[in-house]
Design a protein around this nucleic acid. Structure first.
Length: 548
RNA sequence: GGCCUGUUGGAGAAGCGGCUUAACUCACAUGCCUUUCACGCAUGCAUUCAUGGGUUCGAAUCCCGUACAGGUCACCA
């Protein structure tokens, strides 16, 4: 009679390593007390999702603040869904946020002593563990076809029995080793299932770093641990990888809560100390009154690339995500006058349990704060980098005259309360068009106040052009404007105008508006004096004289 | 449908048995400042914590039911 070991050897004749060998190959990490080892482990099945960025950011932050290690592991075991090139894109985009792994998969080569960090090339490692499990009678080959499984499911549904491959419904669990060997030799396709000893009627408890004590029914399903293509399923890969990579905290989405008993069972039966778990809330969106997960297909903001393309500063997005993660972060930013997420101490305990609604308004707010607080040179550099990738027109303006652009970008920036005009780099061009003659010349009809006739406007603007001061300080310049305004019948003090509006052609604000419209083409603009100084005498005179 | 989780203002949330006539931030509104806008400043915005019971001298805070919402039940992760 054949033994489990015979079966194991038949299934995996080439596997000679043992679990002990692996333990030696991937020794316990020598890290300072309290240091945490975390990981971000995405599948290369598409672009970086906003929710994934959140998860990665939390894992990164937690490792960093504990002087630990943050890893990037590629979970590419689903070969059908893998999209070529998406892994590298994931890494590139993460890098834009400064989330760079200490170890892990990198395009071309891995970094770190606990690799490989790409599951598809770790097949041999999984096989060592699976062979061991089979030799111990804890896992077995299953020969069910898709149709066989469907039949079981149909029967269960028809009889209102809990669906799944477990207990009496685990058909091939009952096969003897001899029968198994016979089928294998006959070439019947197989997968490997884990022989669960769990009791569904019993509860198992575990502590989640965010949610506290959780109680779920124990797993009794004989889950597939190795697929017919020889690669492991998520459940198994997670357990093996996080054990041998010596992960201390597993951060993942809350959708994994229901399968945690499977993972705990696996860790326990293998005699391994499992990691801590932190199941993160998922970012949601309001859709017709209902909350739902941010969807890559329906919501542009579900893709991180959307924010990058629009020119949101990555730091702003991070600040926003941190405000969702730990709401006391906002108070911290105010108390510490800092938007530096790396200086804030993040805590799982302060996370809320249900998924936050994605709030673009608040994102905009934080991004404005971030851009306003970014020093000139740094800002200019960031804008340029963005323009190089995303805006040829802006890039041309910058390259044509960087000094000019820099002045425009930094209007009223040196003040105690700088302007907060831009949430994203993409906002810059639409707000500064009038500084560029070719665009200004295409301006729509100038929105002058209709109470002034053209004759008057023309004369007034011409006089302003000739008499106002150029290159002077703001108050001198303003005085020169006021002089001309007064000479043309405008009240130069609000009080006077309010007391007797009929005695004047208008208020000084009306005069300023005329000048502003002629120079900028619009009623609203940043500080007029600065605008005029940036444009220069020649351009300003031309615009004033040609407005009508 | 079973199981798990959650429910404090438009949004993020603090509070976890008396100090709460529910903090703080965004949004919104109004006003001030001001040559416009932005900035800044000030004020307003839940008599109420999904809902119905209960425990208690006292509940947003504890217990039970109900409703609603989210998650999950694959050879996908």
């Amino acid at each position: 009679m054949a033994t489990y070991l015979d079966l194991a050897n038949l299934l995996f004749p080439d596997v000679t390593k043992t679990i002990d060998d692996l333990e030696k190959e991937y020794p316990l990490r020598n890290l300072p007390e309290g240091a945490q080892v975390t990981r971000f482990a995405p599948s290369p099945t598409g672009f970086l999702h906003t929710g994934s960025l959140f998860t990665a950011f939390i894992a990164y932050t937690y490792a960093k603040q504990s002087q630990g290690v943050y890893m990037f592991r590629l979970e590419d075991t689903d070969t059908k869904r893998t999209i070529a090139g998406s892994a590298d894109e994931l890494i590139d985009q993460l890098a834009e946020f400064g989330i760079i792994a200490d170890e892990g998969y990198f395009p071309g080569s891995d970094k770190g002593a606990y690799g490989p960090y790409q599951q598809s090339v770790r097949a041999d490692i999984y096989k060592v563990v699976i062979k061991h499990l089979i030799a111990e009678g804890k896992a077995y080959p299953d020969f069910c076809s898709a149709e066989d499984l469907q039949k079981i499911r149909d029967f269960q549904e028809a009889n209102k029995i809990l669906p799944g491959y477990y207990g009496p419904y685990a058909r091939d669990r009952k096969l003897t080793v001899d029968e198994q060997i016979e089928k294998i030799k006959a070439g019947t396709p197989w997968v490997i299932r884990y022989k669960s000893m769990g009791d569904h009627d019993k509860k198992i408890k575990f502590k989640d770093a965010i949610r506290g004590e959780l109680e779920l029914a124990d797993n009794d399903v004989d889950i597939v641990i190795m697929k017919s293509d020889g690669l492991p399923t998520y459940h198994f890969a997670h357990v093996v990888d996080d054990h041998f990579m010596r992960t201390t905290v597993v951060t993942r989405g809350e959708e994994w809560i229901p399968s945690t008993p499977i993972h705990i069972q696996l860790f326990r039966d293998l005699g391994w100390k499992g990691p801590k778990y932190a199941h993160l809330p998922v970012i949601m969106k309001l859709d017709h009154g209902n909350k739902r997960k941010l969807s890559k297909r329906k919501d542009p903001e579900a893709a991180v690339s959307y924010f990058l393309k629009a020119g949101y500063p990555p730091k702003g997005l991070l600040v926003y995500l941190m405000s969702i993660a730990n709401s006391n972060f906002e108070e911290w930013t105010i108390a510490n006058k800092s938007l530096d997420v790396s200086k804030f101490t993040f805590a799982f305990k302060k996370m809320s349990l249900d998924g936050a609604l994605f709030d673009e308004g608040k994102l905009n707010y934080f991004c404005k704060e971030v851009l306003a607080a970014t020093p000139k040179e740094e800002l200019l550099k960031a804008v340029k980098e963005w323009a190089e990738k995303n805006s040829p027109t802006l890039l041309k303006k910058m390259n044509d005259d960087m000094e000019y652009f820099s002045k425009i970008l930094n209007i009223e920036k040196d003040r105690p309360n700088p302007r907060k005009d831009y949430a994203k780099y993409g906002d810059i061009e639409p707000a500064t068009w009038f500084f560029y003659d070719d665009e200004f010349e295409k301006h729509p009809e100038l929105p002058f106040n209709e109470k002034y006739d053209k004759e008057f406007l023309k004369a007034f603007m011409s006089e302003v052009a000739d008499k106002m001061l150029y290159g002077a300080g703001e108050s001198e310049w303003w005085n020169s404007v006021k002089e001309v305004a007064a000479a043309n019948g405008f009240a130069i003090a609000n009080k006077d105008y309010k007391a007797n509006p009929d005695a004047y052609k208008g208020n000084i604000s009306d005069a300023a508006e005329i000048i502003r419209i002629a120079i900028t083409g619009q009623k609203d603009s940043p500080n007029l004096h600065e605008v005029i100084e940036i444009l220069g005498k020649e351009r300003v005179m031309k615009r004033l004289k040609n407005a009508i």
